[in-house]
Design a protein around this nucleic acid. Structure first.
Length: 682
DNA sequence: ATCTGTAATC
């Protein structure tokens, strides 16, 4: 020993000293590398038994989001004191792992020797309950802290106010607020933002002493949340001082409520703009489906040297997904690859969704496979992608793979898989899935799941089973459920059941006139002309708006829209000539326009010659004119494709040697060499 | 403590 032993001791002492001084000032730990070195020192020396060192280390781990290091040390502590328990609980809550927070809280109270939670424990535990929407549990914990006789400070108080506010229980929030012995600024502001009721918020606002900027901002936002943009703006005008945040809040109000023009002029009048302002305006344009303008603003933003974040990219990608702007989406993808190497799951998911909704499954799948740490949302996006593109077998396989990789499916996953079963007519698989979601996954079916099941059974001709399912529903059936039944009745010519469905549809007040059209077609098909006339009469009385058929196609990053019988497009003549060309080729191929479809078209694009100029035919004709030979023609339609168009597209795909991808209201049709991916089952 | 975004049946 002697000399060398002394060296080693001194080295250890110096390391300990270094680690402790770093842990004392958390901001001195600047990288995960530092953290790892400290981790090593703690493990190697006696420091891993020091509450002070471990506690502070846990705090630093939480700052870097690396709670796994923290857990390792924590688990080795024989008897953590309350400081250590509190830091690990806080760490989990700060890294948004509320399940762990509650779990640790439970362990703290049950592991011997029991450590009593204090005013540094409860706020985080209450927050965990808020995040997890655990109402009952939160109330129990509130009871516990009351029984413990802890003084209500701002920290505990605000967590409780937020907790009750999160459940819309302003009364309880208010009670906690009133019980606070000292009401500081933070308590007031938290109380104000927790008000669910606008009037209550305003009353509090008016009573509040010494209102600062934050308070004005919150009140303005309260108006916007309630949809009262006018009052929000009036209050904004009254505010003694305004900051960028306040401008952004008002801007967001216009964006959220679709007042796009006002939003744009307000934006232009803003003294300064930050990333949030740009994101808001882009989001507003996207919501209004103005993709081109959203992209223009994006480029403008780049030219002002503002760097986009995840939110910017996700908004733009979702815009491309909505309108089927594949070229623009691809450009964004390459932008992301060029600038944000190793992009996040969220952006990756948005990419998967964009490619899926543009009908480019290969690219969607490619992005998906490369995604690291796929969460449920990512899996859902891909499952939905395969599902709506008619690849039902693949969807089922993917679902299996997801479970193998132990990602827990949620309600939306099931909806996606059910939807695939509907498209392919997999009745037994769908039925089994519907039952297993309750039995194996503990998920409660929502109305949407019932809608899907009714659709599945109905299409397959099992109308009685479908109707029975509706009658056994634990909740009120909604439009979608009855609509699916009505659609099935039309398909299988069941007039009596259709009458039951339409009766319920009429009782549920809704905007969609398509169902009455469908009903009149069902009567027409049964030859019940009196009833047809009656239904038409009801439609006239109700003045139901027929949803106009509308199809769009993207060419060179621009979206061209076509309405049925649209006469607005500058190249209309060429399009008409192309449609004539299509028709003459079709005649050679022996196609006879199915006139019935004029009558039967679900959303009634109506009348004889209209059939020739259905919006999707115009869009495809335009695509044939302006795109290069061999490229895929991609069209998005707002309604469901009609039978004649479907038949025509099949023939066009063969005769013009073009792949045509049409996304309709509910799914995709990939036409290739005379066939459609849906196998004519839709 | 206040502002911006992702998957969804008919």
């Amino acid at each position: 020993m002697g000399f060398l032993g002394g060296m080693a001791e001194e080295l250890e002492a110096r390391q300990k000293h270094l680690a402790l001084s770093l842990l004392k000032t958390p901001q001195s730990i600047k990288s995960t590398k530092h953290l790892r070195s400290i981790h090593v020192i703690l493990l190697r020396t006696s420091l891993h038994r020091s509450s002070f060192a471990v506690g502070n280390f846990i705090t630093s781990c939480a700052n870097f989001g690396l709670m796994n290091y923290a857990v390792q040390l924590f688990d080795e502590m024989p008897q953590p004191n309350s400081f250590v328990w509190n830091t690990i609980i806080r760490g989990f809550q700060q890294t948004h792992q509320p399940r762990h927070t509650l779990d640790l809280f439970h362990r703290m109270r049950t592991t011997e020797p029991v450590v009593v939670p204090d005013c540094f424990t409860y706020p985080f535990v209450i927050r965990a309950c808020t995040e997890l929407k655990e109402h009952l549990r939160g109330k129990c914990i509130h009871g516990l802290l009351f029984k413990a006789g802890l003084e209500l400070d701002t920290f505990i108080g605000t967590s409780l106010i937020e907790f009750y506010g999160g459940f819309g229980d302003t009364i309880s929030s208010r009670r906690v607020f009133d019980e606070l012995p000292v009401k500081d600024k933070v308590a007031w502001t938290v109380m104000l933002s927790s008000c669910v009721n606008l009037q209550a918020a305003r009353k509090l606002f008016d009573r509040m002493p010494g209102k600062d900027l934050v308070v004005w901002n919150i009140m303005i936002f309260q108006y916007i949340k309630a949809g009262d943009v006018q009052n929000a703006h009036d209050l904004f005008a009254l505010a003694p001082i305004k900051d960028l945040l306040m401008y952004n809040t008002v801007l967001g109000g216009y964006a959220r409520h679709g007042e796009v023009e006002t939003m744009l002029s307000f934006f232009n009048g803003m003294p300064t703009k930050d990333l949030v302002s740009w994101n808001t305006i882009i989001g507003g344009l996207v919501r209004d489906k103005r993709v081109k303008e959203a992209m223009d603003h994006f480029h403008h933003m780049l030219s002002e040297n503002i760097c986009p974040n995840e939110i910017t990219l996700v908004s733009l990608l979702s815009a491309c997904a909505q309108v089927g702007a594949l070229d623009t989406g691809r450009w964004l993808h390459s932008y992301i690859d060029r600038n944000n190497r190793g992009s996040s799951v969220v952006v990756g998911t948005a990419l998967v969704d964009m490619y899926s909704k543009c009908g480019d499954l290969e690219s969607a799948n490619c992005v998906f496979d490369k995604l690291q740490d796929k969460d449920v949302v990512a899996w859902n996006a891909m499952i939905m992608g395969f599902s709506m593109n008619g690849q039902s077998r693949t969807t089922l396989k993917l679902f299996k793979r997801m479970k193998n990789e132990s990602v827990v499916p949620n309600e939306i996953t099931i909806l996606g898989v059910l939807c695939a079963c509907v498209h392919a007519g997999f009745v037994s698989e769908g039925r089994e899935l519907f039952h297993s979601m309750v039995k194996d996954l503990g998920l409660a079916p929502r109305v949407e799941h019932y809608g899907c099941m009714v659709d599945l059974l109905g299409r397959a001709g099992l109308l009685d089973e479908a109707y029975e399912l509706i009658q056994g529903m634990p909740m009120e059936p909604h439009i979608g459920v009855w609509g699916a039944l009505l659609g099935a009745c039309k398909l299988h010519k069941k007039v009596e059941l259709a009458e039951i469905a339409i009766k319920h549809l009429n009782e549920l007040e809704h905007e969609d006139g398509g169902y009455l059209t469908m009903m009149s077609n069902i009567y027409a098909n049964a030859g019940r002309w009196d009833d047809v006339a009656k239904t038409r009469e009801v439609m006239r009385e109700k003045r139901v708006d027929k949803l106009r058929g509308c199809s769009s196609i993207e060419v060179n990053g621009e979206i061209h829209e076509f309405g049925a019988e649209d006469k607005a497009h500058p190249r209309l003549n060429e399009i008409r000539e192309m449609i004539d060309e299509i028709l003459s080729r079709l005649r050679v191929a022996g196609h006879v326009a199915s006139r019935n479809e004029v009558f039967f078209d679900v959303e009634d694009e109506e009348k004889d010659k209209a059939l020739l100029y259905h919006s999707e035919k115009m869009a495809v004709a335009f695509g044939l004119i302006v795109t290069a030979k061999g490229t895929v023609i991609r069209v998005v339609k707002n309604l469901r494709i009609c039978g004649d168009c479907h038949a025509v597209m099949k023939l066009v795909s063969k005769s013009f040697e073009r792949e045509i991808v049409i996304r309709d209201r509910s799914r995709f049709h990939h036409f290739k060499n005379g066939c459609c991916s849906c196998g004519d089952y839709w």
